[in-house]
């Protein structure tokens, strides 16, 4: 058969996770990501040691992941916005207990039950906290089905490397749309977890995985340790992509699927002789601050487009720090901005 297959973004996440060595999936159905549990429920029972468990709630799903990864396995859960809200308790525990795991959020319209249309309004929730306490998540935002596959694969490695939760965020339509995709080989070698994973006490002293540290000084010390790790991630794991930014005076910043709308807008602007380019953050945390700063001098202005009322734009403003104007255009509620309206909005500021 062809080395490529035609897949929905959601299916690509599932297949890629399996290739990354994820044998355990815990989840709860919610539109628009149900293809992931459906795919997993077909494939995982056929893999030795594999299991698909339909959890009773998203709260349970994330705690099942906590248990499974604490035993040293690669495990994941996926959901969409309201379900991710339910997982926040568990994510905070996992972050504190320093256990790796992968979570995928195929975002839909909110707040509340909202609708099943695509949105990017969970940025604050996943990038700025969401759960309680001092912690960070690595957040990756693909813009194509191929990237859904690639970043899912990488997410497991990042999670293992730093022993922390990694979240992939995709808009609902990215989960649903189909594109050809090529997968990486089945992973067979993994990080050694024997230092901390719970395997019984046959060859070692009792180990404990916990997130309770009663003594304030001990808790503070632990949080500092987490933040040393986060500093390392900010140094090593920033990902972004640039398109025609070398000579650009207008820097459009957009992530995820909407960056593809922005790309056609840039082409159209270039056709009119306007020097525009795109800087697309792939890691939403760590955020590509330095890349944005490096464009300040050449930029006439920055133009941020999101499928929300403006969330990432705050991070762009922090990076630009008042040096140049930062304009914003967003649609929300599940409305996808069209190239025409994005184009018109950029031109307002010329």
């Amino acid at each position: 058969m062809s080395e490529k297959v035609l897949m929905k973004g959601n299916e690509a996440v599932a297949e890629s996770a399996i290739r990354a060595g994820c044998k355990l999936y815990f989840g709860y159905p919610i539109t628009p990501q149900s293809e992931i549990p459906e795919y997993m429920s077909r494939k995982l029972p056929q893999i030795p040691g594999g299991a698909y468990i339909q959890a009773e709630t998203e709260v349970s799903a994330i705690n099942m992941v906590y248990g499974a990864t604490s035993a040293g396995a690669r495990a994941m859960t996926t959901s969409s916005s309201p379900g991710i809200s339910l997982m926040m308790e568990g994510i905070s525990y996992i972050a504190c207990a320093e256990v790796p795991c992968v979570i995928v959020n195929v975002m839909r319209g909110g707040p509340g039950l909202g609708n099943i249309s695509p949105e990017q309004a969970d940025y604050f929730q996943v990038v700025k906290g969401g759960g309680h306490g001092n912690y960070r998540l690595v957040v990756l935002a693909p813009s194509s089905v191929q990237e859904m596959a690639d970043l899912t694969y990488d997410a497991f490695d990042i999670a293992d490397k730093y022993r922390m939760p990694v979240m992939l965020v995709a808009e609902g339509n990215l989960g649903q749309m189909m594109e050809p995709v090529k997968f990486k080989e089945l992973k067979t070698e993994f990080t050694d977890k024997s230092e901390w994973a719970l395997t019984g006490t046959r060859n070692h002293e009792p180990k404990i995985i916990t997130s309770i540290l009663l003594d304030p000084e001990t808790m503070e010390k632990h949080i500092h340790k987490l933040y040393e790790k986060y500093a390392l991630i900010e140094e090593n794991e920033v990902r972004f992509e640039e398109y025609l930014t070398d000579d650009a005076e207008i820097i459009i910043i957009a992530y995820g699927l909407i960056s593809r709308v922005a790309r056609s807008v840039v082409d159209k602007l270039r056709d009119e002789g306007i020097r525009a380019g795109i800087l697309r953050p792939i890691s939403l945390w760590p955020f590509p601050n330095e890349a944005i700063k490096s464009k300040i001098e050449q930029a006439e202005f920055f133009f941020v487009c999101e499928m929300s009322m403006g969330q990432m734009v705050e991070d762009v403003r922090l990076a630009v720090n008042g040096a140049k104007p930062v304009h914003f255009f967003g649609r929300c509620g599940g409305v996808v901005p069209t190239p025409v309206e994005m184009f018109d909005n950029v031109k307002k500021y010329l």
């Binding site: 355990l24 815990f26 299991a51 468990i53 959890a55 709260v59 349970s60 799903a61 705690n63 099942m64 992941v65 906590y66 248990g67 499974a68 990864t69 604490s70 035993a71 040293g72 396995a73 495990a75 308790e89 568990g90 525990y93 207990a97 719970l198 395997t199 019984g200 006490t201 009792p206 180990k207 404990i208 995985i209 916990t210 997130s211 309770i212």
Partner: peptide, 25 residues
């Protein structure tokens, strides 16, 4: 013994994950 601490009420979910990951435990 080895040990894990679970959030309020979630122990059976954590137990599910552990057992499914390693049925020998």
């Amino acid at each position: 013994t080895d040990h894990i601490q679970a959030a309020h009420g979630r122990a059976p979910a954590v137990a599910t994950g552990l057992k499914r990951a390693n049925p020998e435990l």
